[in-house]
Simulated assay, not measured.
Amino acid sequence: MDTKSKKGFTLVEIMIVVVIIGLLAAMAIPAFQKVRATSQEKAITNNLRQLSSGADQYFLEYGVTEVASTKLVGPDSYIKAFDDVGTDDKYTTTIKQGEDITANLPDGTVVSVDF
């Protein structure tokens, strides 16, 4: 009598599972990257809106029409801190009343908020 068990997977079955997992990953990764980019853009837009609001408060308080963004952000300023977006975005350095506030994203996209 043969007491060996013939349970298990064949090489073909394992290869099919690997191919299916690869296809699922190929579809999921671009979708994940798109969602991530969209969420970063929305976070940056929110940061720009906070800058706009802080600049409005600064203009009303000091009666000026332009301010450096560095004066608006800090522990003792109008905006305590921004949410970390995880990008090397560059915000407008000087905010002028009536001009858009912008940020340049690493992929070259420019996000702006009307001011």
Results as ranks from 00 to 15, higher is better:
57 Q>P: 11
52 S>L: 04
48 L>K: 01
54 G>P: 01
77 S>N: 11
13 E>Y: 13
77 S>C: 11
57 Q>V: 12
9 F>M: 00
53 S>P: 05
7 K>V: 06
65 T>Q: 06
98 G>P: 01
56 D>N: 12
54 G>D: 10
19 V>Q: 03
79 I>D: 06
19 V>S: 15
115 F>M: 14
87 T>A: 00
7 K>W: 02
21 I>M: 11
14 I>P: 12
45 T>E: 11
75 P>V: 10
38 T>Y: 15
103 A>H: 05
77 S>V: 07
71 K>Q: 15
60 L>V: 08
40 Q>V: 07
86 G>L: 00
14 I>S: 12
47 N>T: 03
115 F>I: 14
68 A>N: 13
3 T>H: 05
22 G>E: 00
9 F>Y: 11
61 E>H: 02
93 T>W: 02
23 L>A: 14
84 D>P: 12
19 V>K: 01
9 F>R: 03
68 A>E: 10
80 K>N: 13
7 K>R: 07
26 A>F: 11
82 F>Y: 09
5 S>I: 09
23 L>W: 09
74 G>R: 08
3 T>A: 15
59 F>C: 01
16 I>D: 05
67 V>Q: 04
103 A>I: 05
114 D>N: 15
5 S>P: 13
25 A>N: 07
30 P>S: 12
39 S>N: 07
53 S>A: 11
39 S>K: 02
31 A>P: 00
110 V>E: 04
27 M>W: 14
48 L>S: 05
78 Y>T: 04
28 A>N: 07
32 F>L: 07
15 M>P: 10
86 G>Y: 06
91 Y>M: 04
75 P>M: 10
19 V>E: 03
37 A>C: 07
24 L>F: 11
18 V>Y: 06
101 I>E: 10
101 I>W: 06
26 A>I: 02
60 L>F: 12
28 A>P: 04
93 T>L: 11
8 G>W: 06
82 F>W: 03
95 I>R: 03
38 T>V: 08
39 S>H: 05
109 T>F: 04
54 G>A: 14
18 V>T: 13
37 A>H: 02
13 E>Q: 08
66 E>S: 15
11 L>Y: 15
58 Y>A: 10
9 F>S: 10
21 I>T: 08
109 T>Q: 08
48 L>N: 00
48 L>Y: 09
92 T>Q: 00
40 Q>M: 13
45 T>A: 12
58 Y>C: 09
74 G>S: 12
41 E>W: 09
35 V>I: 05
96 K>M: 14
107 D>V: 02
70 T>F: 06
91 Y>D: 08
1 M>A: 15
87 T>K: 00
52 S>C: 10
3 T>V: 11
15 M>D: 04
82 F>M: 09
26 A>N: 02
104 N>R: 07
26 A>W: 10
59 F>M: 01
41 E>N: 13
21 I>D: 07
51 L>S: 00
106 P>Q: 07
22 G>N: 03
54 G>L: 03
85 V>K: 01
17 V>R: 02
19 V>F: 07
34 K>I: 09
115 F>P: 00
94 T>G: 01
57 Q>T: 13
61 E>A: 10
3 T>G: 12
85 V>D: 01
74 G>A: 13
61 E>T: 08
68 A>F: 08
110 V>W: 00
102 T>R: 05
27 M>A: 15
70 T>D: 12
83 D>R: 06
